[in-house]
Nucleic acid binder design. Structure first.
Lengths: 256, 256
DNA sequence: GAGTGGTCTAGACCACCTC
DNA sequence: AGGTGGTCTAGACCACTCC
């Protein structure tokens, strides 16, 4: 499945090693690029590392370097201890469209699903209290969810909602309804301003487990605070995306 | 310089290897975390890899893995073939404030500088033509610059300006003036809408060279299109940042 | 010229997933 | 139980930086 169309003039795997006396930097990476270009489709599994080693006439460490490179480029991804897969196209995530996740995904001809990991009332810690402008220790609802696109776990989100804004919201089915829809229809709260903080990082251990990602693989962090029609911060969330899963977009008027 | 306060109970380097029978995953990474927490300051150079190997009783490959982890976390960075350094705090980059680079940096008590790599008129290629809504082959000015914060090269940016909007703009000193200021004062063009596309990736070879980054190290890509008071796309740019150099922020009203 | 990081070889053991 | 990825050892050569 892999052997064809990697090197036009090459006659199978052994020929690849012949190029080793060229400037080798990233050569393996380039081979793997070619490898993807031709025969592999989105979400298809790559051959096992040991198989690729043999195919390319290289060692585990070198191959691994190349794979990690491609991972950093967002072209392939790992599931922890399960193997390497070709990255599907990035979901375009318009930060200011504020579409519910399922709608956003559906509108791009993909399939979304959501799993609630935990939903409970907790006292606000320092960070949350500050973001929401409430007293430390005040009651908030914490909702942790994992979201999938086409079956692949791509997003870990942790919401914190002000209890005084959304009393009893935990009684709704949180895997079926979008929060913003509940806000509007059940609580007459409309999000009028959003504020974001974005940075690229890596998954922490817990998040990695939830997404079945290798600990330390690259992640996109998105922290959001939502303000209602009265300018009050009503909830915030911490999103951690597989970094290859999204491309962020936004369009707005500059301030002042 | 490194030997103190890494392991409270440890009596120097050899003790570190005693912990090797614990779950070792990321142990080296954690050691290096401690290592940073204590005695190293922003932009300070880490000891040479061979020195750290000895200090931690490990091998090159393992150490390198740990360092690459910390790089992915944005805690340290490389200059190509020069060594590893502690990452300075991230610059907060408000996407919608549209502050000139020098002002943004200065307002955070940092020092900015800019270097013009190239500035010339070229025909618009497919991508640029599409972004700017002009004919393929139409004249555009391409300006490539490298920007520094506190002396560190963190940003490679390539602008494309419509020639018909900014005739003769290349005659100005582009390392001293901000483009948006020139737009406003020399051409009476004011940016009224911006549209962004963000994704995390790695540096390509050319960009890496310009920033003195190792090829393949993690990067944040920011593509921007600027629209003037008539709704016309007047310029666009492709920014590639060292991913540890920035934290993006924005605050706006959601659409609709 | 000495030392550095960048790249590579050739193995090994273990935890975990899949069958 | 066999195979997988995750982690690690112990070296090597080269291109480049810095002195």
């Amino acid at each position: 499945m892999l052997s064809s169309s990697i090197e036009p003039t090459g006659d199978d795997a052994t020929s690849l090693t012949h190029t080793a006396d060229l400037p080798v930097t990233g050569l393996k990476g380039r081979l793997l690029n070619h490898l993807e270009a031709a025969p592999l489709h989105a979400s298809q599994r790559l051959p096992s590392e040991r198989e690729m080693i043999e195919r390319f006439g290289t060692t585990r460490v070198t191959l691994r370097d190349a794979l990690l490179q491609l991972e950093a480029e967002g072209r392939i991804y790992r599931e922890n201890r399960r193997g390497w897969f070709v990255s599907p196209p990035r979901l375009r995530y318009d930060l200011l469209a504020c579409l519910p996740f399922h709608e956003m995904v559906q509108s791009q001809q993909r399939v979304a699903s959501t799993e609630v990991l935990a939903a409970q009332e907790v006292p606000a810690d320092e960070v949350i209290a500050q973001r929401l402008g409430i007293a430390r220790g005040a009651g908030v609802y914490r909702i942790t969810r994992v979201r999938r696109i086409d079956g692949r776990r791509v997003l870990h989100v942790c919401h914190h909602l002000r209890r005084d804004c959304f009393p009893g919201i935990l009684d709704f089915d949180l895997s079926a309804h979008s929060l913003t829809t509940l806000y509007l229809h059940q609580y007459a709260i409309r999000i009028r301003r959003v504020s974001f903080e974005l940075a690229s990082s890596v998954f922490d251990a817990e998040t990695a487990v939830a997404l079945n990602a290798a600990p330390g693989s690259p992640a996109q962090r998105i922290t959001r605070i939502n303000f209602d029609q009265n300018g009050r911060a009503v909830d915030c969330d911490d999103e951690h995306w597989r970094h290859d899963a999204i491309e962020l977009t936004l369009s707005a008027a500059p301030q002042r």
